[in-house]
């Protein structure tokens, strides 16, 4: 008889299952998504603005943009969040301002501003990947710089911008957990609040991880779909989700026959 003694692990899958759909966890997960989406949107907006400023020849535009990237990429995100949340209230010492600086707002703003610094470089690389002849052609048709950017350059730059932005968003989903430091009850903080009472550390960390994995998985599928759609006009166009599904469905049917 084989009798290998398994080490007895203190891990109860039932606890995981019980807390997976716990109201506090669900609310935390929801907050993680909302904060990450809003912060990423702000980051993309700031990234586009700051990339255009950075590429300008006008020092009044490119110096502030360079400073922005240098500063926010060069200091820890945690310090930035603490600065907005704790530093600013001290600086102004004005209850009206302090009241406005809720953890949720600071989380979205702090993560978004930090993200914008990284997005600046991604957007810039995307714009620079578009051939110079495209701008010439757009201008020769009577477009202003801004219109040429909007109608001709940025749509093409998106193809280069979207994949790394997807990475950024996945990082954002997880980095938002740093906001526990400013009292935001997002997914990580929600699970922490439960295990600090029931001491089921492993189980609740597993619960949070399952949700993070779920979010990143769903998002990866979404990203692949966006990339397929953006590849319009490319010689080798990857199939869209709909295309792949009909294809898989068709293959399954032939196999069954």
């Amino acid at each position: 008889m084989l009798s290998i003694a398994l080490p007895s692990l203190d891990f109860d899958p039932h606890v995981v299952w019980r807390f997976l759909f716990n109201a506090v966890i669900l609310e935390g997960a929801q907050r993680t998504i909302v904060v990450a989406v809003l912060a990423q949107a702000l980051g993309v907006g700031m990234g586009i603005a700051s990339a255009l400023m950075r590429m300008s020849k006008n020092p009044l535009l490119n110096i502030p943009a360079n400073f922005y990237v240098w500063f926010f990429r060069g200091t820890p995100l945690l310090i930035q969040l603490l600065f907005w949340y704790n530093g600013l209230p001290q600086l102004f010492d004005n209850p009206d301002i302090t009241r406005e600086l809720t953890s949720f707002r600071v989380a979205v703003f702090g993560l978004g501003v930090n993200e914008g610094a990284y997005m600046t470089e991604i957007v810039r690389a995307g714009i620079e990947s578009v051939e110079a002849g495209q701008m010439d052609a757009a201008k020769s048709l009577g477009m202003t710089y801004a219109k040429a950017m909007r109608r001709v350059i940025l749509p093409q730059a998106l193809r280069v911008i979207v994949p790394p932005t997807g990475n950024e968003f996945i990082a954002m989903l997880k980095n938002s957990s740093l906001c526990f430091a400013i009292g935001l009850v997002e997914l990580t903080n929600a699970s922490r609040s439960i295990y600090s009472v029931n001491f089921k550390f492993m189980e609740l960390l597993a619960v949070a991880s399952i949700w993070y994995l779920g979010m990143t998985t769903v998002f990866s599928v979404f990203q692949a779909e966006v990339e397929a759609r953006l590849a319009v006009g490319m010689r080798e166009r990857p199939p869209t989700l709909f295309g792949r599904m009909t294809e898989a469905f068709g293959a399954a049917r032939t196999r069954l026959r």
Binding site: E131, D136, A137, S140, L141, Q156, V232, G233
Partner: peptide
Amino acid sequence: EREVARMRASIGMVFQRFNLFPHLT
């Protein structure tokens, strides 16, 4: 810039490398 753009609109230009917009039909 706007006036220059308006003026360019009435001057057609064709390039060696075509410079078509690849994302449009």
